[in-house]
Amino acid sequence: MNGSFENHHESHQEWSALSLAFVMGALVSTSALIVLITAPFTKILGPSAFALGAALHGLTAFVLLVVATVSLYLAWRLYMGRIQAFPDLQLATTVMATLAFITITFGNWIYIPYRAKIPDSPRSYFLTNMPEVHQVFFEFKEFTALFTLPLATAAAFILWRYGRQILADRHARTRTAIAILIALHFFYFVIAFGLGAAVTKLKAI
């Protein structure tokens, strides 16, 4: 009786997650289709040949900000020994590592027009008009962004390799290490995200 109830409960949860994903997918697809058909979507991306790359870099970074924030909260729960959504943390750190890789890849792509040796490129503009923006803030941002990938990957690897064993008392320091990895990932990512947004506001590619 009890087992039957649990099975029903599990299948209901699975069905709910699938239906939620389906509803979200349908809503996003429908909205995107309507916008693409009825609105001048390319105008909002801008005239640059790298506009799509810049938009995708910003989009993946924004999604990473959301996932990293959720992970930071779950990492705090893990550190305090009060985590219940353990599989969610495993999934979230995996998504963090994947998104960090994708965001860095798009970042590399749009770094090409940023540092192009033409007077109108953002790098040339900053070096002429406000050199500190490039020489301090952008330089720091481009390196801290790279730190996010190994940190998230290490956190995800440890969580998957150890599974729920990480909740044992003997792995208390490893739980602390995971919390630190995720907190540092968040720290470096927020620096890169904030400075990227600020630099783009001053001079976009």
Binding site: M80, G81, R82, I83, Q84, I158, R161, Y162, G163, R164, Q165, L167, A168, D169, R170, H171, R173, T174, A177, I178
Partner: peptide, 26 residues
């Protein structure tokens, strides 16, 4: 295995696979 603050056993017990050393995490 118990976790401070969480009532009851969480995760592995003696009947489950042996604990993984922390070297891989380090």
């Amino acid at each position: 295995v118990t976790v401070p603050g969480v009532p009851g056993p969480v995760g592995q017990t003696a009947a489950e696979p042996q604990s993984i050393p922390n070297g891989a995490a380090i």
